[in-house]
Amino acid sequence: MTPDEIGTRLGTLLGGEQLTVGVSGGQAYARATVDVPPDRWRDALRTARDDAELGCDFFDWLSAVDELADGFDIVAHLWSTRHRHGVLLRTRVPRPEPEVPSVVDLYPGAAWHERETYEMFGIGFAGHAELRPLLLPPEFEGHPLRKEFVLASRVAKPWPGAKEPGESEAGTARRAPMRPPGVPAPGEWGDR
């Protein structure tokens, strides 16, 4: 199936209304892209998995994109190992209370991705039993992949050594050239 056919098939199976179907990438890297409302998130992933023509049996990855005032886009990529095609599913959740249903029971491989997205963006996955820290220490505050997250500033310290040759108090002392270990000095080898 072509990316257009995949997107059209999934859109038809999901009812078509409130969906945006398109193609992302180009040529050999083109993927069907389907935007679904948050309340249809699980249905979309289940349909992509269970439909015989789509057969997206492999969960590739899930993450999010911070769209500032528009909220967060949650993105999942599914792949069919039998048909060798993929589909990119997206949904947008509001910024104040970002949450979608978990898909761990549909794709067990999503557990790690949902935990990471929860930790880095603060997006909840209703029904996920173990939304606990994955990459950051437990005392860490905030969600580092949100655009409003302020990065810690670096403390500027003067460099204790000389910046350029000749700028130190010791003068312009030159280091004696050294031979690599095991290389004899000129005159110690060869014909005499």
Rank of each mutant, 00 (worst) to 15 (best):
A30D: 01
L131Y: 04
A111P: 02
Y29F: 07
F59S: 12
G7M: 12
T33P: 04
M1C: 12
L131I: 09
L14C: 05
L106Q: 07
W159Y: 13
K163E: 15
L13N: 02
P160G: 13
E5H: 15
F149G: 07
V183Y: 09
E130S: 03
S63T: 14
D191E: 14
L62E: 12
M1E: 14
D51F: 04
G161A: 15
C56A: 06
W41S: 09
D73K: 14
T2S: 13
S63M: 07
A48L: 00
A44Y: 13
E148V: 11
P94D: 02
A126N: 09
H128W: 06
R174T: 09
F121Y: 11
Y118I: 14
G15L: 06
E139R: 00
D51K: 03
I123G: 01
G171T: 05
E167R: 13
R84W: 08
F58D: 11
D73C: 15
W112Y: 12
R42W: 01
R115M: 11
E164Q: 13
G16I: 06
P177N: 10
M178D: 11
A162F: 14
V23R: 07
V36S: 12
V104E: 00
R42K: 11
W189N: 03
Y107G: 04
P94W: 02
P101M: 05
A76V: 09
A162M: 15
V103S: 08
F121T: 04
L151M: 12
Q27S: 10
P144C: 14
G190Q: 01
V103H: 00
V150H: 06
G15Y: 03
G166C: 02
H83K: 07
G166A: 05
G71S: 13
W159N: 12
G15V: 03
V23C: 01
R9M: 07
E169D: 13
L78H: 10
F125H: 14
E130L: 08
P96H: 00
P144L: 10
L135Y: 10
L13C: 01
A170S: 12
R42P: 00
P3A: 08
C56F: 00
G190K: 01
L19H: 05
D4F: 13
G182A: 10
E99M: 03
S168A: 15
F58S: 04
E97Y: 00
P165C: 08
G187N: 02
G124E: 13
R192C: 01
V75H: 10
M178Y: 04
S80H: 04
D66Y: 06
G109S: 02
P180V: 05
D43M: 11
G22V: 09
T20Y: 00
Y118A: 05
Q27G: 12
E167H: 13
F125K: 14
K163V: 15
H143I: 00
A28N: 07
S63V: 12
G127C: 05
A162V: 15
M1H: 11
V103P: 08
G86K: 08
G86E: 10
H77G: 08
L106R: 09
E114P: 03
T117K: 05
K147Q: 15
G122N: 02
I123S: 08
